[in-house]
Design a protein around this nucleic acid. Sequence first.
DNA 1: GTCTATACCCGGATAGAC
DNA 2: GTCTATCCGGGTATAGAC
Lengths: 209, 209
Amino acid sequence: MFATPSKRSGKAGRYHHGELRAALVDATIKLIAEHGVRGFSLAEASRRVGVTVAAPYRHFADRDELLAAVAVRALEVFVAMVAGDTTDTDPPAQRLAAMTRAYVRFAAEQRPLFETVFHAGLDKSRYPDLKRAYEPVDALFLSAVNEICEGDAAAADALAAVLEANAHGHAALLLDGEYGEGSDAVRAAADQAARASQALIDGRNALHG
Amino acid sequence: MFATPSKRSGKAGRYHHGELRAALVDATIKLIAEHGVRGFSLAEASRRVGVTVAAPYRHFADRDELLAAVAVRALEVFVAMVAGDTTDTDPPAQRLAAMTRAYVRFAAEQRPLFETVFHAGLDKSRYPDLKRAYEPVDALFLSAVNEICEGDAAAADALAAVLEANAHGHAALLLDGEYGEGSDAVRAAADQAARASQALIDGRNALHG
DNA sequence: GTCTATACCCGGATAGAC
DNA sequence: GTCTATCCGGGTATAGAC
C-alpha cells in the first residue's frame, strides 16, 4: 500500500532478531496493562514488537500459549515479591503478615500480571508450568506456618490455606474497587489483610473440623 | 438465503414479543455458563433468543449495559442465597459461618453469575445500580457482626470486612481450581471458609491497628 | 525466522424499511 | 419493536516465498 514499507515502521519497531519470544512477552505485559487481559490480542502484540502477525507462531502454538508464558513470568515476580519482604530471623507471625501484605501489594502494583495469572482463564492442565510456578507460594506460607504449628502437619496445612485465601480475598476485592482507588486503598487493604492474618493465627484452634 | 426464513428459525427461537429484555438476560446467563464471561457476545445472545443483532439496541445502549443487567440479577440471587441459609435465632457466629458457606457455594453453583459480578470488568461508576445491588451483602455481614462487637462500630466494620474478604478469597481460589474440581472441592472450600470465619471471630482482637 | 498475502470468521453498531 | 442490509473493524491462523 505504501512505498517501501519498512520492517521497522511504527513507534515501537526496535526489535531485530533472535529474541522475539521474550519481546512478545514484554509487549504482552504492557498491552495487558493498558487494555486488560480481555483486550489483549496476539495481533496487536506483534505490531508493537514490529513483526507481522505470522511471526509469533514460530514461538507459540497459539495465543493462549503466549498468555501462559506471561503468567509464568508473572508468578516468578509474584514469588520474589512475597519472599523478598521477609527475613528469616523474624518471628513467623510477622513474616506471614509481611507475606500477606506483599501478596496484596503485588495485586495492586502488578495488576496486569495478577490478572493474567488469576483471570486469564488459562487451562492449567494444559500448562503444567503454571502449576509448578505457583508451588513456591504455597511453600513459603507453609514454611512459616510450620514454625507455628510445630509437628502438626494437618494443622499447618489448614492454617496456610486460610492465610492464602485471606490474602487472595483482600487482593481480589481491592482490585474490584471495594476499598476505593489509589495508594490509600492499597495501604488500607494490605494493613487489614495483615491484621486478619494475625487474627487467623490467634484463632487457629477453630480451624480443626 | 433460505426460503421463508421464519422469525422462529433456530432451535431456541421461542421468543415472541414484549419480553426481549428479560429473554436476553436469560440467554446471556446461559451463554456465560457455556463460554465464560469472555466468550459472551451480544450477537450470539440475539441468535439464541431468535432475534436479529439489531433488536437488543432498543433495550440496551450497548453490550456492557446488558452485562450490567445480568450482574444486577446475579447480585439479587447472591443476596438471597447468603441471607437465606440463616435464621435470626441462631447465634451470630453460626450465622456468619452459614453466610460464608453460602458465599462460597454461590460462586461454585452459580459460577457464571459470580463471574459476571466480579470478573466482567464493568465500570461501576457507570452503573450505580451495581453498587446498590451489592450493599445488602455488606449489610448482612454487618448485622450479624454487630451482635458480636456490641457498641464498637469500628471493630464491627473491621471484622465484617475481613469476614467478607475471607469468604471471597475462598470462593475465588475455588473457582481457580486450587481446591480441585467437583462437589468435594466445593464442600471442602466452604467448610474451610466457615471454620476460618470462626477463627477470625475468635482472633478479632488482632484486628485493631 | 520472518515476511507477504490471504482466507476465514466474528463482533459492534447503525440506517432505514415495515 | 423488530427486521433487512450493511459498514466497519478486528482477530486467528495458514501457505508459500525468501
